[in-house]
């Protein structure tokens, strides 16, 4: 037995388990995506059991490609993911830099900052859409009404009345509508995931070399220049990590989309799969394969862009 055989043998169970774990679902999805397979069809009952005799070739793929929501779902997936990434990274860096200073009550502030991350996605969705964003009963509705009432009451005031009489009446926005439901999802997920970014950036900021900062002060760098030339490059690696992890997570958003508008005006690939899976398992599987391809494209893109920072 050569030196390598024993270690290989010992690794085998783990490798085999991983292969099964990945390969079985993937090959089943592939299989279903090439056959006609529906849960319920009175005219063609034979389609309700998966079998090779129902072979459809690329028919399911064609069907998905031609369905009206497919392109939109891909675009919308990317739109939601990119928006969340940009917002969480910017907010995360700003908050981390602010909280990294010493001030009274810092411990409590940090705990409070982290807490949104521990709210379940579905609960997060319900809280936001009903309590914060609802145009009548939510915080948004109350705030807009309050503002309108205030403007109305000031309209008759002397001296400044004319100013407020020129103000328009504000309309609350309905975030369940076709045009706005994606923004609602972006807001709630950003709220939930910014703490994650803050947490990672904060740890990194604490390892920043103070002597470098002092050298920069002597070199005449303003606070902004120190942030721009020292802190931001120092955060390069944690930003890469935050972007990678979040990109993977948010491509599969589901609960928030379901709760905000049931996919009205706001679908992504997982949601589309869910819709097809109500009956047409073949089409759902084909969409699943498209989702795998999209995830891989995004991953390759990210690795190209970010991998270099990570490997340095």
């Amino acid at each position: 037995m050569s030196d390598r055989t024993l270690p290989r043998l010992l690794q085998t169970p783990a490798v085999v388990l991983l292969l099964i774990w990945m390969l079985v679902p993937l090959s089943m999805t592939l299989y279903f995506s090439f056959i006609r397979y529906v849960l319920n069809n009175l005219r063609r009952p034979e389609w309700t059991t998966p079998s090779l005799s129902n072979w459809r070739g690329f028919g399911n793929y064609e069907f998905v490609l031609k369905s009206k929501d497919f392109l939109f779902a891909i675009q919308n997936s990317l739109f939601i993911v990119c928006s969340i990434l940009i917002l969480t990274v910017i907010l995360g860096v700003l908050i981390a830099v602010l909280v990294n200073r010493t001030f009274p009550g810092r411990g409590i502030v940090r705990v409070l900052l982290i807490s949104p991350f521990f709210v379940m996605p579905a609960v997060n969705g319900v809280l936001w859409i009903n309590m914060l964003l609802d145009p009548v009963l939510g915080l948004q509705g109350l705030a807009v009404n309050g503002l309108n009432d205030l403007a109305a009451s000031l309209r008759d005031a002397p001296l400044i009345g004319w100013f407020f009489s020129l103000w328009p009446e504000f309309e609350p926005i309905s975030f369940r509508a076709t045009q706005t439901s994606a923004y609602a999802v972006i807001m709630m997920v950003t709220w939930q995931w910014t703490p994650f970014a803050v947490l990672i950036f904060m740890t990194s900021l604490q390892s920043e070399d103070q002597q470098q900062k002092e050298a920069a002060v002597l070199d005449g760098a303003s606070t902004w220049a120190q942030f721009r030339f020292l802190t931001v490059p120092h955060l390069g690696r944690p930003i890469a990590i935050v972007v990678m992890i979040q990109a993977i997570f948010h491509l599969s958003l589901y609960a928030e989309i379901e709760i905000v508008s049931r996919g009205n005006g706001n679908k992504n690939l997982p949601y589309l799969i869910g819709e097809f899976a109500n009956n047409n398992i073949g089409a759902a599987s084909a969409t699943g394969i498209f989702a795998v391809i999209l995830a891989n494209i995004v991953a390759i893109f990210l690795l190209r862009m970010i991998g270099k920072t990570l490997m340095e």
């Binding site: 050298a215 005449g220 303003s222």
Partner: peptide, 27 residues
């Protein structure tokens, strides 16, 4: 005044050229 630190305190993300140029760039 210019100060040289025990730990060098160079800016790790910049090349030597950029490190040396930094105070001039700031000025």
């Amino acid at each position: 005044l210019a100060m040289v630190f025990q730990s060098y305190a160079l800016y790790p993300h910049m090349t030597v050229r950029k490190n040396i140029a930094f105070p001039m760039r700031m000025a």
